[in-house]
Computed example of a mutant assay.
Amino acid sequence: MIRGLALTVVTALTASLAPTAAQASTPTTQCRQTQVPVQVTGTQEQLSATLCDPGDAGTVLVLFPGASYDSSYWDFPVRPRTYSQVRSLTQAGFATLALDPFGNADSSAPLSPRLNASVEAAALHQVVSALREGRVGRAYSRVVLVGHSLGSTIVALTAARYDGIDGVVLTGLLHRFDPVDTVALFTRGFAPAASDPKFADRGLDPGYLTTVPGARARFFNALTTEPDVLAAEELTRGVFPATDVPDAGVLIELLPTTGLIDVPVLLAVGEADRIMCGTPPTGTDCSSAATVRSAEAPWFSAAARLQVFVLPGAGHSLTTAPGTRQYQRAVIDWARSYVEADGGVR
């Protein structure tokens, strides 16, 4: 009986994932799949993405997910009225471009040795330029980058090195992290994606990784996360190139690269994030926005006007935490107050 129930749940969830690009569509918002051409070490590749626009948005938020996630992280297929950040942003009047990182969905899968965080930041900068120039839909006057976890390191590198960005949201990323849980995740939680039946026909080289069964539990607060959310997380798992990790760790976690970001920054983290939070001096005290800001402020310049949001009870992944609507509202309020009120890049 239990096995039959599990099969029913999995079948229903799988069916719900088919029209992912339309999950956030509303009567006033149109979503469509698109591909953005980018140059990677001299070769043209493409990043697939879902562009959602309520019709008159001047600001577009570019959403870059973390390791082993694709664009569905931002437009989650379970109860989108609660868990889709794309939906909440577009209903608030913003456009969104949810990216599928290399190796995911219809994005190219360059040989992993050709990729690292710096290369991906250069590709993300090309996406920003395409949005400003009207080569992805219409031209947008303001572009905000939103990242999660490893995706946040790529977002931070892009904002530190390139112009054309009006604001940055970094989620699931702090400069102090729990080394024990992080090492456990990267040594036992990931395996070559080519060995996973879900990705067996993708032609991915061994450098592309995905999570092993059960590893995604580290992304959540098991006491509060809903069972169907956990099940959908396993079904929507993605891949990432392991070659992104070394320079991301050095450039963001060890060097003061984030101090070069000169646009408004919102830092968001879950109070119960097992990877980032813990007892100083290793992990960060995430008991309040004040304690997180105290730890993080030295890594940012005054120009960043650093704002911090802590989601009570949440783990590493904020979009699928039960209180995610609070986080979504914090991003919307910040974007209106610190990005749109400034009028964009000058």
Rank of each mutant, 00 (worst) to 15 (best):
R3W: 15
L5V: 12
A6R: 02
L13G: 06
T14S: 14
A18G: 05
A22V: 02
S25R: 06
T28S: 15
Q30E: 14
Q30Y: 12
C31V: 08
R32H: 15
Q33K: 04
Q35H: 12
Q39W: 08
V40E: 09
A49H: 01
A49L: 01
D53N: 05
A57F: 00
V60E: 07
F64T: 15
A67C: 07
S71D: 09
Y73N: 06
P77Y: 04
V78S: 13
S84T: 01
L89W: 10
T90M: 10
A92M: 04
L97T: 04
P101R: 03
P101N: 07
A105E: 07
D106F: 10
S107L: 04
P110N: 12
L111T: 11
L115A: 04
N116F: 10
A117E: 06
S118V: 06
S118C: 06
E120D: 05
E120H: 06
A122E: 02
A123P: 00
Q126G: 01
V128D: 00
L131N: 00
G134C: 10
G134Y: 06
R135S: 10
G137F: 01
Y140T: 01
Y140W: 02
V143C: 00
V146E: 15
H148G: 06
G151H: 01
D163F: 00
V168C: 14
V169S: 12
L173S: 09
F177N: 09
D181P: 01
G189P: 03
F190N: 05
P192R: 09
P192K: 11
G203R: 02
D205K: 05
Y208Q: 03
T211F: 14
A215I: 10
R218G: 12
R218Q: 14
N221E: 15
D228H: 09
L235S: 11
A242N: 05
D244R: 03
P256K: 09
T258H: 01
G259N: 10
I261K: 07
L266D: 10
L267P: 03
A268F: 10
G270E: 13
R274G: 09
C277K: 02
C277T: 01
P281I: 11
T282P: 01
S287K: 12
S287H: 11
S287Y: 09
S288A: 13
A297G: 08
P298D: 14
P298G: 11
A304F: 11
A304Q: 05
V308G: 07
F309S: 13
H316D: 15
T319I: 04
R325G: 08
Q326H: 14
Q328V: 07
R329A: 13
I332G: 08
I332N: 10
W334T: 08
V339E: 11
G344D: 05
V345E: 11
